[in-house]
Design a protein around this nucleic acid. Structure first.
Lengths: 168, 168
DNA sequence: GTTGAAAGGCTTACTTT
DNA sequence: AAAGTAAGCCTTTCAAC
């Protein structure tokens, strides 16, 4: 991916409602060129969509927890993600290496709600749960490192890049 | 928070670039009324901003890991989040209950990068790390449960319904 | 792939109810 | 708080380099 595409993605990650006019000014291209690049980024799946970032506290979901799950019977078919997808309190579901099978990010309104969701998780996926309650969120969903060049691969140098030293 | 505000937040969570015209049609209000409500939601901090959702694979960050950290010396001042904030590979930083002090979500390009970031985390915050590698992401950042009413029975207080004056 | 221009649509503010 | 109107800017498409 080119440097300009990276700049576009970085800008839209920071502000998803940037106008094409502002975007064009930032990356130093015409409005039409920027528009075409954004459309291609969307079609290629680099940009998957746009979303408003909401305050979970304001949305009455002040309690966040990580729930590591492990099946009661490891010989059973492992389809926990699908069996849990119907629970809207589950924000994310990761298949992980280590002692546990999956790691869930859960957002609820209260400890009572957390208890209810944990019970629902256990019964829906036939798993044991190990829960880590989040006390506070220092930061979350920070924009990824999108700078001038590729982080590790040596496939090509970006425009204006000097040496091939690793980015810090 | 009112039902219409919930509908607005839900719609903008699913599609952050919805026009006010479309939004007005969805919630059954005029464009002006919707515009005013969105501005108030933004000013109250319910809507914190807008962001493009990007594919981390496409951004050359295919490796995700959770890093639980614990200080070498628990008597030292605990300012790990600030000491780690300069590392762009850290997506999120949660203060957690349990055996560990913080849980980090890290996104990197390769195992070599992960090693480098882990070393940087240890030296920057003077902590030990316990890393859980993500094998696959079933789903991530799902829209929170924003339906008609409060999630738990009765007791929940809506934002902005509090007593007394509100800043802004 | 980039640029420039034009038509249509959207945002925003103001006014009214 | 909600609706209507108008001005200005943006989005989107089309043609040209």
């Amino acid at each position: 991916m080119e440097e300009i595409d990276r700049a576009i993605v970085a800008a839209l990650t920071a502000d998803g409602r940037l106008s094409y006019t502002d975007l064009a000014e930032r990356v130093g291209l015409s409005v039409s060129a920027v528009h075409q690049r954004v459309r291609r980024l969307e079609q290629r799946g680099v940009i998957k969509g746009y979303a408003a970032r909401v305050s979970f506290e304001a949305m009455e979901l002040p309690l966040t927890a990580f729930v590591a799950i492990r099946p009661f019977d490891p010989s059973q078919p492992d389809d926990a993600p699908e069996r849990l997808a119907h629970l809207p309190e589950i924000d994310s579901c990761y298949s992980v290496a280590g002692e546990d099978f999956y790691l869930l990010l859960v957002r609820v309104a209260s400890p009572a709600d957390l208890e209810r969701v944990l019970q629902a998780i256990r019964t829906a996926a036939n798993v044991t749960t190990r829960t880590t309650v989040v006390l506070s969120t220092a930061y979350e969903g920070r924009p990824p490192k999108i700078s001038a060049g590729p982080p590790t691969r040596g496939r090509g140098r970006a425009v204006g890049e000097g040496t091939g030293s690793t980015a810090g």
